[in-house]
Design a protein around this nucleic acid. Structure first.
Length: 486
RNA sequence: GGCCCUGUCGUCUAGCGGUUAGGACGUCGGCCUCUCAAGCCGAAGAUCACGGGUUCGAAUCCCGUCAGGGUCGCCA
C-alpha cells in the first residue's frame, strides 16, 4: 500500500558548535544524494539545544558550506517549510509538551540524584560492577518521595530486559541488550530538553523516513527506537556510515590537516572536487572515480556505502582536483581564477580577455586554483627579481649575444604569433649552435623570474609583444652586465 | 571495563562460493620534451588480520582469537 508517507524524507542535523567538518559534509552529501536519487526531500535542521556552545556564526559557516557544496535543502533555515521551525532552540515549547506527555503517560520520571551520586554510580559502571551508569533509584518514586525545592531532571524509562534490534541499512542486523540501556535524561534541571529526545520528536514531527548519520550515533539508536516505541510511533529506517579517520587511525581532526570544508575551499579546491572526493570516500560504483552530479544522483544507494572507517588521502584529492581543472572548459574557470588572483595576489584582472588562454596553459600544471593563480601571476605583474639559483645556473655570460639576437629578432617581428616567434628562436639556435633548452631558459627567466612556466612560445604570445620586449630587454642588459663584470 | 562496529595492496575501493583477487591515488622505471607539468607505456605492491570449521571448492558462509575504532555527559 502506497501513500504519501512513503516519500523519502531525510535530514542533515548539524549542531552549530564549530565549522562544517569534512565528515559532516560527507554525511550531508550522502543524505542529499539519497533524497535526490529517490525524488524525496532533504531537510536541514540545526541542533542548537546546547545554548552554551552553539553560535550564530557557526550556523552561518555551516549554511555557507552547504551552499558552496551545492547541497540545497527543501526545508530548513532561510527557506522555511511546513514543519518548522528548523532550529531546535526555537522548538522548546514542542519538546516541553512532549516531555509532559511522557510524564503523564508514565514513560518518564523525575530524578533528584545529585552530581556526586551520579559520579559514584558512573564509576561503578566503568569498573564493570554495574551495567548502567544510573541505578534508576528515582524510577519508581512518586510525589510523596519528591524533596521540596530540590532541582530534578526528567529521565526516560528504558526497558530492562530483552534486546533491541536495529536493521541498519549499512551496518546490517545489530542487537543491543536492553539491560544496558540507560534511563537517559531528556530534560535538564532547568527544563530544557536534551538531544536524544529532541531528535526523536523532530524526526517524527518532520516526517523523516530515513536517518543517515555517522556510526558514532549507533549506540543512540537503540535508545531512540525505544522512545519511538514507548510513544507508539514507528521509527524511521537507520543507516550508519563509518567514520573518517586520519592516517593514524584516529577520528579525523585538525592535526591531520584540513578539517573544515572552508579550509579546502581556501586551499583552492573547487566544490565539485570536494564533492567527488567525498562521495568516493566510503562509497563506490564499480571502478568509476569521477562522477558528474547527475551520475552521482543516478547511481547513489545507501546500501553501497561501506561499513568501515576510511582515511583521507590528500594526494588523491589533488589528483582529482587536477582532473577537474583539466576537463573543465577554460571559460568556466575564469571567475574562479579571477577571484583567486584577487584573493591571494590582490590582482584585479577579472575583465582580462587573456584569462581563458592562460587557463588553457595552466590547467595541466595546477593541482588547485591556488596553484593556477600563482602560475598566472607573471602574466599580470613583472617579476620583481630573478630567482637567485636560476640566475646563477642559467644566466651565463655566453648568452649575452644570443639573447640580444633574440631580442632584436622579436622586436623586428611584423606579427606577434606563435609561429613567427618560434622562427626567431630557431634562427638563434642555428646561428649560435645551441639547443632550444639553452636559449629558452633565459627568456623564460626574463618574463617569469623563474625556471617554470608554460611553453615559452605560448607564454610570449599571451604576455603580448610590448610587455615581452620590455622584460627581455631588461634581461639583455642583465646578462651584458654580467659579461662585462668578468 | 561494559556494550557496539570494523578488518582486501601504503591509501580509497571492486568482489557478494569457482577470478592469474580487478580498478584508482601514490611510488618506481621508460617514452615524449624548451622548463614544469600533462599524456602514453610498464613495474613493484594484498599468503584477502589470524586460527579453526562448513564445502569438491571460501576473500566471500559459521565460530573463535587478535588488532583498530566508536560509545558509555544535566554535549550533540
Amino acid at each position: 500500500m502506497r501513500h504519501i508517507m512513503d516519500k523519502v524524507r531525510v535530514r542533515f542535523a548539524p549542531s552549530p558548535t564549530g565549522f562544517l567538518h569534512i565528515g559532516g559534509a560527507r554525511t550531508a552529501l550522502f543524505n542529499w544524494l539519497f533524497a535526490r536519487h529517490n525524488k524525496g526531500e532533504f531537510i536541514l535542521r540545526i541542533e542548537d539545544t546546547d545554548t552554551e556552545r552553539s553560535t550564530d556564526e557557526a550556523t552561518n559557516v555551516i549554511l555557507d558550506g552547504m551552499r558552496w557544496l551545492g547541497l540545497d535543502w527543501d526545508e530548513g533555515p532561510d527557506k522555511g517549510g511546513p514543519n518548522g521551525p528548523y532550529f531546535q532552540s526555537q522548538r522548546t515549547p514542542i519538546y516541553r509538551q512532549w516531555v509532559q506527555k511522557a510524564l503523564d503517560a508514565g514513560l518518564a520520571y523525575r530524578c533528584y540524584a545529585t552530581k556526586e551520586e551520579l559520579e559514584a554510580m558512573r564509576e561503578l559502571k566503568m569498573s564493570g560492577q554495574t551495567k548502567t551508569a544510573y541505578d534508576r533509584r528515582w524510577r519508581d518514586k512518586g510525589p510523596a518521595d519528591w524533596p521540596a525545592d530540590q532541582p530534578y531532571v526528567i529521565r526516560f524509562k528504558m526497558p530492562t530486559e530483552g534486546i533491541c534490534v536495529v536493521e541498519d541499512m549499512i551496518q546490517g542486523h545489530v542487537e543491543f541488550p536492553n539491560d544496558e540501556m540507560e534511563d537517559i535524561i531528556i530534560a535538564r534541571a532547568d527544563g530544557s530538553p536534551i538531544y536524544n529526545f529532541c531528535v526523536v520528536v523532530d524526526d517524527h514531527l518532520m516526517g523523516i523516513s530515513h536517518v543517515v548519520r555517522g556510526v558514532d550515533h549507533l549506540n543512540n539508536t537503540a535508545l531512540q527506537i525505544h522512545i519511538y516505541k514507548a510513544f507508539g510511533l514507528t521509527p524511521p529506517r537507520f543507516g550508519h556510515v563509518g567514520l573518517i579517520h586520519g592516517p593514524d587511525g584516529k577520528k579525523y581532526s585538525k592535526r591531520h590537516g584540513a578539517v573544515a570544508v572552508t579550509e579546502w575551499r581556501d586551499a583552492g579546491y573547487l566544490p565539485q572536487v570536494l564533492r567527488n572526493y567525498l562521495v568516493r570516500l566510503g562509497w563506490a560504483y564499480g571502478d568509476q572515480e569521477i562522477f558528474t552530479l547527475e551520475e552521482m544522483i543516478e547511481h547513489f544507494t545507501i546500501e553501497a556505502i561501506s561499513k568501515s572507517a576510511s582515511i583521507v588521502n590528500p594526494s588523491k584529492m589533488e589528483w582529482l582536483s587536477q582532473q577537474y581543472l583539466q576537463s573543465t572548459p577554460p571559460a568556466e574557470l575564469v571567475p574562479a581564477l579571477a577571484a583567486e588572483l584577487k584573493r591571494s595576489h590582490n590582482l584585479d584582472v577579472a575583465d582580462d580577455p587573456r584569462l581563458p588562454a592562460i587557463i588553457k596553459e595552466l590547467n595541466t600544471r595546477s593541482k588547485t586554483m591556488l596553484d593556477m593563480a600563482s602560475g598566472a601571476v607573471f602574466f599580470f605583474a613583472r617579476p620583481a627579481a630573478y630567482d637567485e639559483k636560476a640566475d646563477a645556473k642559467f644566466l651565463t655570460s655566453d648568452l649575452a649575444e644570443p639573447v640580444k639576437f633574440i631580442f632584436d629578432g622579436l622586436s623586428a617581428l611584423p606579427e606577434w604569433k606563435e609561429e613567427s616567434i618560434q622562427k626567431v628562436f630557431e634562427d638563434t639556435m642555428a646561428k649560435f649552435e645551441m639547443k632550444l633548452g639553452k636559449i629558452a631558459q633565459p627568456v623564460r627567466i626574463a618574463i617569469t623570474g623563474t625556471t617554470v612556466s608554460p611553453g615559452i612560445f605560448e607564454s610570449l604570445v599571451i604576455l603580448g609583444r610590448d610587455e615581452s620586449l620590455v622584460r627581455i630587454e631588461k634581461m639583455v642588459k642583465h646578462i651584458a652586465a654580467k659579461a662585462t663584470e668578468k
